[in-house]
């Protein structure tokens, strides 16, 4: 392929290895790679071109009260883009194909929007990255840590289960020395957490220190789905029993 397409527009569909354009015109995004000053697709899918935002895009953080600085963090990188801002080109699989929506509507007062399933085309697998908010299920607990299986990363449901750890010092931001794992998590709980490190060979390290992070779904010892009543308690609606957890602050919808 020696065609130096400097003026032609990039294709709308790309297969791996397809030339997208010179690196002087675009910034490489996901699904692309750089080779010999040209950008090529590395995935099969549709080509998207995103114009640079006015201000450097920051990692999307859930809105919350600005927290006091408790640790020194490197200043957010001032837009890793070259001075002249180029549009980002990326390749991604079309998301939903021939989805069959079943008739079941959202149940009255239900916590869910049911539907989906069926012949939905799965999205491309993603890996948890530092800073991502993930949903995970607690697999087992020890006094030092909770072992979890990461099921959802951001908005995408993961095909594979990735193992994560919530260490006792990462459960909450205050009174770290008083944290007991068994008062924070129980096996089976669904937890919202943030990835803080790629961890060791097997585990991602997760943290639930922020208010909106913690247990989102918990089942009581009697087997009923419980409701959060405070920042550290869930209540079984049938038996009225209280159980301790690191409760995630419900997010405004």
């Amino acid at each position: 392929m020696t065609t130096t397409t400097t003026t032609t527009a990039p294709p709308t569909l790309a297969v791996p290895g397809q030339l997208l354009g010179p690196a002087s015109r675009y910034q490489p995004g996901p699904g692309t790679h750089l080779h010999n000053a040209n950008l090529y697709a590395s995935l099969l899918g549709h080509v998207h071109i995103t114009q640079p935002a006015q201000q450097p895009q920051q990692r999307q953080r859930a809105p919350g009260p600005a927290k006091r600085l408790t640790k020194i963090t490197p200043a957010p990188a001032p837009a890793p883009t070259p001075p002249a801002e180029l549009p980002t080109i990326s390749v991604a699989v079309a998301e939903v194909r021939s989805s069959r929506v079943p008739a079941a509507g959202a149940g009255a007062g239900a916590a869910v929007a049911s539907g989906g399933g069926g012949g939905e085309r799965k999205k491309r697998e993603v890996l948890p990255e530092v800073g991502n908010v993930v949903l995970c299920r607690v697999v087992r607990i020890t006094p030092r840590q909770a072992v979890v299986a990461i099921l959802v990363c951001g908005d995408s449901v993961l095909e594979a289960e990735w193992q994560g750890l919530i260490r006792v010092q990462d459960v909450r931001a205050t009174e770290k020395d008083r944290v007991r794992i068994y008062e924070s998590f129980r096996p089976g709980d669904v937890v919202r957490a943030e990835v803080i490190s790629l961890g060791d060979q097997a585990n991602y390290y997760l943290s639930t220190t922020r208010n909106e992070l913690g247990v989102v779904l918990a089942v009581s010892e009697a087997g009923n789905t419980m409701q959060p009543v405070s920042w550290k308690e869930f209540r079984d609606p049938e038996t009225g029993a209280m159980e301790l957890r690191k409760v995630a602050q419900p997010q405004p919808q």
């Binding site: 791996p16 995935l43 491309r124």
Partner: peptide
Amino acid sequence: LADAGIDCVDT
């Protein structure tokens, strides 16, 4: 591999 969405330099 392309169907699975694993990055490849080429087919």
